[in-house]
């Protein structure tokens, strides 16, 4: 899932300065699961923002809340359609994709982010989320026994650990596991340590930060006459 956390209230208050009717829009998908922008958090941020605005002498600003199932898909944004006309700004509690989807859909309404989108990751334990995937577009997890060195090694090393791996931890932080220790341990438990002896081919970054924003196009799924936007 996409993991995010909330922005501080003063930052949000300053962003929406100059607006008199604000709709706080939560998202029922990833950010609900990571407890950052679901229905409950939308209520919390809406309430906090109202109080903050009142203390700043802007009691007359209307702040209302609603949560839609998914902000990153136009079909789910439909339910906001008529309502948005009543507001001059949207505070999106979706991830960066959600914020941009709302901005594209409502060209005449200001859209602001209420969250800081962090990464793609998993729930490690209750209340703790960990980054697992960099979305590089060229997955090599099979080669690394299910542990991604691009995301989880601080140096993105592809052919083994650096010299600063100590007792299974990374030099960056004692809280950070050395990805290469994890890869080695897993290879060992699978009886495939020998596979680590070969030098890895360089990563093909043309699928990642190359050529601007990426698209995945499935021609077989495109509706005739409504292919990918230019």
């Amino acid at each position: 899932m996409i993991v995010a956390d909330r922005k501080k209230i003063p930052e949000i208050r300053d962003m929406v300065q100059g607006h008199n009717r604000i709709l706080v829009v939560g998202c029922g998908t990833c950010v609900t699961v990571c407890l950052a922008g679901g229905e409950r958090e939308t209520g919390i941020i809406g309430s906090a923002l109202r109080m903050s605005l009142k203390l700043a002498g802007r009691e007359n600003v209307a702040v209302h809340e609603c949560t839609i199932e998914r902000q990153c898909e136009d079909a789910f944004i439909d339910v906001l359609g008529q309502r948005v006309g009543e507001y001059d700004a949207i505070l999106s509690l979706g991830c960066g994709a959600g914020v941009q989807a709302l901005a594209e859909r409502f060209p005449k309404t200001a859209v602001y982010p209420g969250l800081n989108t962090q990464f793609m990751g998993i729930l490690e334990s209750q209340g703790v989320w960990a980054e697992k995937c960099a979305g590089c577009g060229n997955c090599r997890l099979g080669q690394y026994f299910g542990i991604c060195p691009i995301t989880r090694c601080s140096k993105r090393q592809l052919s083994g650990p650096c010299g600063s791996s100590r007792n299974g931890k990374c030099e960056v932080s004692e809280q950070t596991d050395c990805a290469w220790q994890l890869i080695y341990d897993r290879a060992k438990s699978l009886g495939k340590v020998a596979m680590l002896e070969s030098v890895a081919v360089p990563q093909d970054w043309s699928t990642s930060n190359d050529g601007g924003a990426r698209k995945v196009v499935r021609e077989d799924q495109c509706i005739a006459g409504m292919g990918p936007k230019a």
Binding site: K8, I9, P10, I44, A48, M51, S52, L55
Partner: peptide, 8 residues
């Protein structure tokens, strides 16, 4: 923490 951010 949130109250502190709000200014209460």
């Amino acid at each position: 923490q949130i109250l502190g951010e709000i200014g209460i």
